[in-house]
Design a protein around this nucleic acid. Structure first.
Lengths: 333, 333
DNA sequence: TTGAAAGCGCTAACAG
DNA sequence: CTGTTAGCGCTTTCAA
């Protein structure tokens, strides 16, 4: 192992193996028409020198860098943080390198995208809520494959992997009815996208099928403090059960109910099955979006589009499942 | 704006501005010895064509990519997630591109580092607890500048930006004594690094200066469930106040105390001032590490080492501050 | 089965 | 003040 700072180039390997640079390249790319003897010599030489190909040079030559841009907002939201973590892991397995940008503002997002393009990313994965339109536009002009995760922007021209909010809403309705609830509320988020709305209508429709109707519908930003304030109006209607578009909303509601301390709290269902939901204090029934699966498919989709840039756009829907916990235990009031 | 997928190269700009490629390059790099007239022509042409320089090609030529590797573990920990978010933002401001790897296992970390090297990153920032040694070794052989954030591995040869755990411990001791506590416990983490220990000794030493001594010392992994179990032994000693190495530990302790419901809970101080600590339910006094500052300095350090690879290694210590909340309100028992 | 040569898009001597 | 030329490290025709 060379301890001097010098980087080993393919030329060094070639010399040591008494062979040309082209052959080194061919061996490393697994070209079949290379004699076993030389292949072994090259591999040995590369190994002894600790050769690591320069992926920047390769990228320039191949017009393909193996870098994928990832645009994300609001890593303070543990759901986003977890999604990013999984994406990064899956990309590593597929030998893709994630160049990550956290677009806080719109201008930030615009320039972030521009920089991604400058780095010749092979594709872009976006799990950023507010700026999808800019991203879509930028990827179109740059003709880079784009995969939206958990957003459906309506655009048919771009691939998207998302959850099935309507199905989740239906599952929740079934569950709550089975648990004996008779009056229902929905506590939604302020999505610019229609994610929250999809969950709500799925919920309302299935309730209707059970001959119940959705009562109070309340909306809040997704962060805790506003949600806590909005929670009081949800509670004032005293529903048997509340379906929340998000675990943060659900926890704010649970806390508000605990504080009010007026009679038994409603049954509460959250969304995302975050780590906090499982804590005994909340013990919150929650919809799990199956992020594991969702991120896998997202990365696979991106990879497919890298390999074949003519690959058709893909729309995948991942089935959520319900994790039942104490917050929807039948009341013995 | 060209809507055909074709990428604009500097040659196109040169032709449109009736000038050579070199001049285009010079204009874009702000070379002063260019006539105003041509500068304007070039800028106009570049703008009209929507030219974005190919940073991969530039990186190859310049032997400097503007890419910085970021190694992180456990994004499920909101502290890490927030740190990453801030790092990414600050790097963006400095026009650095973060290539992020989440090293889950040691092997993962090893190969992640190798890939970072292959991408010719200009520097590496690590906020990964367990694998610092591999990372240090890899960066040394690759002779890449490395900045450790919030780790002190003892190694003098590598730059590090960290918090002052001892000072924080002292502040907490002062605060708790002032609030009337007379018996004290420490609820620590299982750091392989000595971070938790530093906080503890800072705490114990200052207590001693006040003629108090640290009683129970208990240790747990940093995640909630183990902490919740360990919390009972902390509580069994019935201390007036407990300093926790982490907000997760502190919340587990608070929950355990709430559940026990035997007399008033101890005063509790956490560490990291996470978003959860501020929720009314916990209302947790906590040490704020000043991540804003810490991440800024980390990025600045990395940038300095990129500009001047002979820059001396740096060791910076960021002063924490205490955010006082209800969990240390004087008891009126 | 292998080597020679060209070129990815950019920048930086070195000339003029 | 600007153009010509060479070359970063790699891959890949094209020839042998």
């Amino acid at each position: 192992m060379h301890s001097d700072g010098r980087k080993i180039r393919s030329l060094e390997v070639a010399e040591r193996a008494q062979i040309s640079r082209s052959t080194v390249s061919r061996v490393l790319s697994g070209d079949p028409r290379i004699s076993e003897a030389t292949r072994a010599r090259v591999l040995a030489a590369a190994d002894e020198l600790g050769y690591q190909p320069n992926l920047i040079a390769r990228g320039l030559k191949n017009q393909s860098t193996g870098i994928v841009g990832v645009v994300v907002t609001d890593l303070d939201n543990s759901y986003h943080a977890h999604a990013l973590q999984l994406l990064i892991e899956k990309m590593g397995e597929k030998r893709l390198a994630p160049l990550v940008f956290a677009g806080n503002s719109v201008e930030g997002a615009e320039s972030a995208i521009a920089r991604l393009m400058s780095y010749q990313v092979d594709a872009v994965i976006a799990l950023a809520a507010p700026f999808s339109q800019s991203i879509i536009a930028a990827c179109r002009t740059g003709s880079k494959p784009l995969v939206l995760m958990n957003r459906h922007e309506g655009e048919e021209s771009v691939s998207a992997v998302g959850g099935d909010g309507a199905a989740a809403g239906a599952m929740v309705a079934d569950h709550l009815v089975a648990r004996g609830a008779r009056s229902f509320a929905f506590f939604g988020g302020d999505d610019s996208t229609k994610i929250s709305m999809e969950r709500q209508t799925g919920f309302a429709d299935r309730l209707a099928a059970h001959s119940f109707s959705l009562g109070t519908v309340c909306t809040s930003r997704y962060s805790y403090d506003p949600a806590r304030r909005a929670a009081v109006s949800v509670l004032s209607a005293a529903p048997d059960a509340v379906f929340c578009a998000n675990d943060t909303l659900a926890m704010a509601l649970a806390d508000a109910a605990r504080e009010r301390d007026a009679g038994p709290p409603p049954m509460i269902v959250g969304y995302d099955n975050s780590a906090l939901a499982a804590r005994p204090l909340y013990d919150l029934t929650s919809v799990d979006q199956n992020l594991e699966e969702m991120t896998s498919r997202t990365v696979e989709t991106a990879l497919a589009m890298v390999f074949d840039s003519q690959a058709p756009t893909v729309r995948l829907t991942i089935s959520p499942f319900l994790v039942e916990r104490g917050s929807t235990r039948p009341r013995t009031s």
